[in-house]
C-alpha cells in the first residue's frame, strides 16, 4: 500500500542523507521525498511517499524513528489527510488554436499560466498526484516541452498535527 510519511527532523547537514541512505540500504521503495525548513529554523519537515506491505511499512516507520536526527514522525495515510503536489509544465503554444486549447485545459484544472512567450505557456498546477497525472494526459494532443514536479507534501485534516 501507498503511505505518506511526514517527519520532523533536526535541520542539520547530513540529515537528508541519513534518510535517503536508510531507504537505499534497506531496499525500501521511495516514490518521492520533499524537504524544507519549518517555521522553527532548527527543524526541517520531510514528506516521504513510499509503498510496501504492512510489515515493511512498520519497519520503515521504526527505522526512521530510530535515526537520531528524527524528532517526530507521523504516517499521514493512517487518518484523513490532505496531500498536494505542485507541478510546473512548459507547453508548446505557438498557434492561436494551441494557445486557446491549452488555456482552456488550464482553466478546467484550475492551473495558472505563469509565464508566456510567443511559442510557449508555462503553467503552475497544484493538487493530488492523480490530478497532475490527469492534466498531463489531457495535454496529450500538445507538445510538452518540460515538466517539473515538487513531490508530495501533506498534512493531517482536523485537529491532528505534527509538531513538538
Amino acid at each position: 500500500m501507498r503511505h505518506i510519511i511526514s517527519i520532523l527532523i533536526e535541520n542539520e547537514a547530513g540529515a537528508l542523507s541519513r534518510v535517503a541512505g536508510l531507504f537505499s540500504a534497506r531496499a525500501y521503495n521511495i516514490e518521492s521525498l520533499t524537504v524544507a525548513p519549518t517555521e522553527d529554523p532548527s527543524l526541517s519537515r520531510m514528506t516521504i511517499v513510499t509503498n510496501g506491505t504492512d510489515r515493511i511499512i512498520e519497519q520503515i516507520v521504526k527505522q526512521l524513528n530510530k535515526l537520531i536526527d528524527v524528532v517526530k514522525l507521523m504516517d499521514l495515510t493512517e487518518g484523513p489527510h490532505i496531500e498536494r503536489e505542485m507541478m510546473l509544465i512548459k507547453v508548446k503554444a505557438a498557434t492561436m488554436a494551441q494557445r486557446e486549447d491549452v488555456k482552456r485545459l488550464c482553466d478546467i484544472f484550475r492551473g495558472h499560466i505563469i509565464d508566456v512567450t510567443s511559442s510557449t505557456y508555462t503553467i503552475e498546477l497544484t493538487g493530488a498526484v492523480s490530478k497532475l497525472d490527469s492534466f498531463i494526459e489531457a495535454l496529450a494532443e500538445h507538445k510538452i516541452i518540460e515538466t517539473v514536479r515538487s513531490g508530495v507534501t501533506g498534512i493531517a485534516r482536523g485537529e491532528k498535527s505534527l509538531h513538538l
Binding site: 510489515r55 527505522q63 530510530k66
Partner: peptide
C-alpha cells in the same frame, strides 16, 4: 529495547 528489532522477521 529497540522497537525495530520487534516483529522484524517474526511477528
Amino acid at each position: 529495547i529497540d522497537p525495530s528489532s520487534i516483529s522484524k522477521t517474526i511477528t
